[in-house]
Simulated assay, not measured.
Amino acid sequence: MASFASVPSPSLLFRTPHRSPRSLALTQFKNGFAGRVLMLRVNCSSDPIRDVEPEADNISSSSSSSSGSTSISSYNWYAGLGGLGFLETSYLTYLKLTNSDAFCPIGGGTCTDILNSDYAAVFGIPLPLIGLVAYGLVTILGVQLAGKNMPFGMDETNGRLILLGSTTSMAAASVYFLYILSTKFAGASCSYCLVSALLSLSLFFITLKDFGFQEIQKALGLQICLAALVVAALSTSYGTSQSISPSLDLQPFTTEITTESSPITLSLARHLHSVGAKMYGAFWCSHCLEQKQMFGSEAAKLLDYVECFPGGYRKGTKIAKACADAGIEGFPTWVINGEVLSGEQELSELARASGFKSDDLSQPN
């Protein structure tokens, strides 16, 4: 008969082992220590997150600070370069108002001739005075924007737009004047003109960099309109007849005609000579030169040209008797069949006044 003494009862299988007080205390200590370690690990793992967030904030603030310093730096450039231009134009304005000769380390007499030519005024206003106002405006705006202290309650956006318009207008005028310098005064040199052009173009490019590509795209239409208005105003001013006399002493000189004559201009020049048409001019007159350029070098020699100041010009010099008798008041002046035409004329107008037929224009003699 089998014995069941060796099989434990169910109550013994599920009985909790007996533990002594010391064992219980040790277990609680281990559990508590593990909990503290776990909390420490969580805290340690979360600390870097809290540490990184302030660093990110610092980077953001540093970035904005860097952006702000860049803007202030560009405003300082406006103030500095505008100030240099203001000083230069102040000097030239003083010379213009006192009728004094400029000190020209480069260019000599040709520099003085350019500064006192008809191109040194726009609608009768001395060009240095206009530059003085423009450079002064840029300088004031640069200083005010750098100090974040705009006048008349103006905000920074409006101040920057005024800078954009001003520097665009100045750059357009400088490009136009460089064209005049290279075409009307070929071979001459004017250090003040070149310095002013350099300053204006530098201010313009600083503005482009300060605004950025996206902002410039939005204001491109405004810039084109301003540049077109400046060029149109200058062209209109210089398109009028030249004054009867310059405001400086000039020795007579000749300017080479660089264009070639066509059969049409040769035919017209011969016809004008045959009817006794006369062209009155002065050796310094740029419009007289342009008129001759229309005909070309060979045809210009066939014109009956009357020089009104053959001995040069200086204060008090009288106009030649032939010009005085004809009542010449500006250059060039054409007298054709008793008709007086003042200023530079189109070839078609000269053909009309002289009776040169249109058929002859298409089929020259």
Rank of each mutant, 00 (worst) to 15 (best):
S69D: 13
Q223F: 07
A5Q: 09
S66C: 03
A146H: 14
A227L: 11
A282W: 04
Y192N: 06
D51L: 12
P332K: 00
T255Y: 07
P8R: 10
L81S: 00
S60H: 11
V133D: 02
Q242I: 03
G159H: 01
L181F: 10
E349Y: 06
S66I: 06
Q291G: 15
T27Q: 15
E88W: 00
E349M: 10
L289E: 13
G136H: 02
D101G: 11
L268Y: 01
W334N: 13
R314G: 05
A120R: 03
S6I: 09
Y135M: 09
H271R: 01
N365M: 07
F356V: 02
T240C: 06
S64R: 04
S235K: 01
L341Q: 09
G68T: 03
I106K: 00
A228G: 04
S174I: 04
E156R: 01
I59E: 12
L201D: 03
F295A: 14
F152H: 11
F309K: 06
P263A: 04
F213T: 14
S358E: 12
D304L: 08
Y135P: 07
S45I: 14
L220R: 05
A146R: 13
I216Y: 05
F14Q: 12
K321A: 15
R22G: 15
S362A: 13
A173R: 00
A173G: 04
G212E: 14
S261M: 03
P332C: 10
S354Q: 11
Y313N: 05
N99G: 08
Q291C: 06
G124L: 03
T110Y: 02
L38Y: 11
M150A: 02
V143T: 09
S286A: 08
G131W: 02
P246H: 02
A186N: 07
I125C: 05
A233H: 00
E256I: 00
A219N: 06
S342M: 04
T139C: 10
G355Y: 02
L164F: 15
V7E: 09
S69N: 06
S348K: 13
I130Y: 01
P105L: 09
V37K: 01
L40E: 06
L289F: 11
D57G: 13
P151V: 15
M150V: 01
K209S: 12
G212H: 07
K218Y: 07
L163G: 10
I72K: 05
S62L: 07
L115S: 08
Q217K: 15
I114D: 06
S166V: 13
A324K: 11
I106E: 04
G32T: 04
Q345L: 13
S67Q: 12
S69K: 06
T89D: 08
S90V: 02
L222G: 10
V340M: 08
A197V: 09
F204H: 04
T258W: 05
L161M: 05
T139G: 02
I216K: 01
S297P: 06
H18W: 03
G159E: 11
S191L: 00
L302S: 09
E88M: 08
A5P: 00
V340S: 11
V122I: 14
S286L: 02
P54D: 13
